[in-house]
Design a protein around this nucleic acid. Structure first.
Lengths: 289, 289
DNA sequence: CCCTGTCATACCCGGTAGGTATCACTGAGT
DNA sequence: ACTCAGTGATACCTACCGGGTATGACAGGG
């Protein structure tokens, strides 16, 4: 093999070891025996001319170069699986007499429902509209879905989502509100500040998972809107959300505008290298809403 | 092999065929015989369950899925070679007693020389400064260098460079000037508009290569600043450039501010997934200039 | 009608990825 | 201190498959 190539297989092997930090478990995860895995990693290190793993007594740790390959390799593997997924999708819909591409649009479940509705309606009215599959997902998951090709385009919400690495267009800006139990004293206020709601002794701020982990804090951990709504209704927590959350308020909830919360900007985002005409049509529709 | 994997080798093979649209030439480029290449592509198509190439009599053309794989595969291959390059760099400098990472900074040759100088000086004064290798490159080449890992960070100039797919911070904004032959009548003006300089019959606008190709137009094709300077001095062309180009004007040149040209914004840009501490240090220095 | 250019098929060979058995080493527990 | 459990490395074997050569099938062009 050429000395400066890196096969997908080798990369998968290395990622498994780098994540498990244990050859045996990594081999098990890969569905193979440990010795060939050890050998494969050694060959990889020899070919790259770089030491990737520190074999200590009792376990394995990453060298500096190993850390780099862990990060860069993740991006490369994601790009590869994205290529497979998007090619398969393009091929499956590639019927004769006009390619009927289908786009997968990732949206935070129940986020900006109104905007999504308007977008889908407007796009469906376009003359050469493709089929749009809506893929609901958790917070922050859009980025991963775009990167590994499970989605082609996403609605994202700055500053909750990071637009880094994607192309995007701004769609709408909204203020944020605090959603409180209606019986709480603060619910009577006309406006609130972030400081007001972040330090209520009997009403700690709810915590959402961010890239799989919850930020530290006293508040309850919630992972969907229903859980959150219930906890607020029960007077156990308070949440800060974009204006459009008013659409699903319960009777036991009160929404109070926040004066100093950063505005939430909804973007339509897609992988920067996309060149699909279908995607371009959807983006055009979205920006003209 | 698992049915949903795509080996780097297969991707390289497909890219060669997709670009050459000819199995024989592609095989030659890959340094192999044609039959195994044909077979490899067939296996790939079978495993993906998608037809990638249309084998017409007398040649080959891409199907829709093939077009998608050509684009997505390019990104995936770039990400893979980037992983190798960056890992090698990290490993080479990984001497005991403190990793001495080295960053590669891509800059448009002779672009914003003053800013670059300030940045390098300021960064070198930092307590834990790494070594910065400056990689001069042609117009628009920064993006490619960042994508395939030959560079870690770049100075880019919106709107000439596209920041799509990268993280970036704004460093400076400057106006644009027209650089004319000093003896030309328009050189006497205090200011000019874009319309003034884009339609001078005897002085067509010079054309720079953009991603390898020249835009159409009557002006001369130039690919470096010296060529351009000479053609202007000879009274053959006019150019629109950022303010900082005043630094290298010749005696035979006259710079006239443009009133309606879009401002040029210099950014420092890096791959969105970068997590390197060394890079973070350089970026911090840059934004505090 | 042959000849040329193109991609596909048939067949063979060698390298190598992967399996099993085992070794070498080290830390923990008694 | 000795053993034992757990780790990664080594040795060796096998089977698969990636790659080569020879050739076929087919279409256009002179």
């Amino acid at each position: 093999m050429a000395v400066d190539t890196l096969e997908t297989r080798e990369l998968r092997y290395f990622m498994a070891v780098a994540e498990e930090l244990h050859f045996g478990r990594a081999a098990e995860r890969l569905g193979m025996a440990q010795p060939p895995l050890s050998r494969a990693i050694q060959q990889l290190e020899r070919r790259l001319g770089v030491s990737l793993l520190e074999r200590n007594r009792r376990g394995v740790s990453l060298t500096g170069a190993g850390e780099v390959l862990l990060h860069e390799g993740r991006a490369a593997l994601d790009a590869t699986t994205a290529a497979v997924r998007r090619t398969r999708r393009a091929g499956g819909a590639d019927s004769p007499g006009g390619p009927r591409h289908r786009l997968v649009l990732a949206v935070k479940a129940a986020g900006s429902h109104e905007l999504l509705q308007k977008l889908l309606d407007a796009y469906a009215a376009e003359p050469d509209a493709a089929e749009i599959e809506v893929l609901p997902c958790g917070i922050c998951e859009q980025e991963e879905l775009l990167r590994d090709g499970r989605a082609d385009v996403a609605l994202m919400h700055a500053p909750y989502n990071s637009l880094a690495g994607f192309d995007s267009e701004e769609l709408q800006t909204e203020g944020q509100i605090a959603i409180l139990p209606a019986r709480h004293p603060l619910a009577a206020r006309r406006t609130l500040s972030l400081a007001d709601v972040s330090d209520i002794p009997d009403l700690p701020l709810a915590r959402w998972p961010h890239h799989g982990t919850y930020p530290p804090g006293p508040g309850p951990e919630v992972h969907d809107q229903t859980q959150l709504a219930q906890l607020i209704a029960l007077g156990r927590t308070v949440a800060v959300l974009p204006d459009s959350a008013r659409a699903w308020l319960w009777a036991e909830h009160t929404a109070v505008p926040l004066t100093d919360a950063p505005p939430v900007v909804t973007h339509i985002a897609w992988p920067a290298h996309s060149r699909s005409l279908v995607l371009a049509g959807l983006i055009r529709t979205a920006t003209q809403l």
